[in-house]
Nucleic acid binder design. Structure first.
Lengths: 152, 152
DNA sequence: GTTCGCCTTGACGTTTACGTAAACGTCAAA
DNA sequence: TTTGACGTTTACGTAAACGTCAAGGCGAAC
C-alpha cells in the first residue's frame, strides 16, 4: 500500500480494525452511508470514510438504525450555497442531540434498576440463613417462588 | 382475610399506556419476557407485569435486543434456594452495568460530535459572505463541494 | 337474537441488517 | 504456470421484531 500524501485504507484493513465483516462495509456503501473511491474495481477508503465508519458504529451501538444514521450523516454533507438547508440541518442536529440526551436519561434509569437488582441479590446472598418473603410490589424485582396470580 | 384487590390491567390498557400495539405485547409473551395470567382466554396483567413491560421498553430504547432483555429479566426471577445461581446472576448484572456505562461514553462521544457539527454549521451561517474551504481532516465534519478523491 | 367491541390464536408478510454462496478478476509469490 | 490471497458483483437466505389479515370466542347492549 503506497502512501500518498493522503492516507488510504482497504476494505479488509477497516474490517479488521473495526471488527466487522467486509460485507457489512459494502452494505453501508449500498445504503449510502459511505462512498469510498475506486481504484479499478477495488474500493479505497479515505480518512474521512474511516471517520464516518467510526461514527456509524458508535451510533449503531447506541441503538440508532442505519436509516437514522444515514440522516445524521447527511447533516454533515451540506451542499455549499444552501444556507437555508444549513438552518434546517442545525435544527435536525439539535433534535438529535436532545434525543441522545434523552437516551442518557434512559440509560441512567436502566443502570439504576440494575443496581437495585444487584442490591437485592446481595441481600439475598447475605441472608442465606434467613427466610425472606416479599413480592408483587411496585418494582420488577423479587424472587418468585410461586408463579403468576392465576385468576381462573 | 379482607379482599386484597390487586390492580390488574388489560392488554389494550397497557398498549395505550405505553403506545405499543397489543401484538407487540403478545410477542413479548411468546418470547417469555412476560407471563400474564388468564381470565378465561383473556390476558390479565398484574402490576409486576406492567413493571416488567416498563423495563423491557426502557432497555429496548437503549439498544438491547429482546434476547438480551430476556436474559436480564431472567436475573430477576431466581428460583429460591439457588444461591450459586445468585452469584452468577450478580456477575451478569455487573456485566450489564459496565456495558451500559460504556454506552454512556459512546453517547457522550456522539453528542460531542454532533455539537461539533452544530458549531461548524453555525460558523458557516455566520460567515455567509465569506468563503471558507477546509476539508479531509481527521473528523467527519466538513462541507463537501467536491466528492470523493477518485483515484482512478 | 343479533350486533358491537374487545379479545383470542394462528399464519403469513415485512423490514432491517447483514450472512453466505457462486462465479469471477487480479496480482504476486512459488 | 499454477496457486493463493484478496477483491469484486449478483443473488438468495436468515434472524429479529413485529405488522397484518383471517376466523372466531364472549359478554354487554339494543
Amino acid at each position: 500500500m503506497p502512501e500518498r500524501r493522503e492516507q488510504i485504507f482497504t476494505i479488509s484493513e477497516l474490517s479488521k480494525e473495526f471488527d466487522i465483516t467486509p460485507r457489512a462495509i459494502r452494505f453501508y456503501e449500498d445504503k449510502g452511508l459511505i462512498t469510498p473511491g475506486r481504484k479499478g474495481l477495488n474500493r479505497i477508503f479515505s480518512k474521512r470514510d474511516r471517520a464516518r465508519l467510526t461514527l456509524i458504529l458508535h451510533l449503531k451501538k447506541v441503538g440508532f438504525s442505519l436509516s437514522d444514521i444515514s440522516q445524521i450523516l447527511d447533516l454533515y454533507d451540506i451542499p455549499d450555497g444552501q444556507l437555508t438547508q444549513g438552518r434546517v440541518a442545525l435544527l435536525k442536529f439539535k433534535d438529535r442531540i436532545t434525543a441522545l440526551e434523552q437516551q442518557q436519561v434512559e440509560i441512567d434509569l436502566a443502570i439504576e434498576k440494575l443496581k437495585e437488582g444487584c442490591e437485592v441479590i446481595e441481600n439475598h446472598l447475605a441472608e442465606q440463613t434467613e427466610r425472606r418473603d416479599r413480592s408483587d410490589t411496585d418494582g420488577v424485582i423479587g424472587f418468585s417462588v410461586a408463579p403468576q396470580p392465576q385468576v381462573s
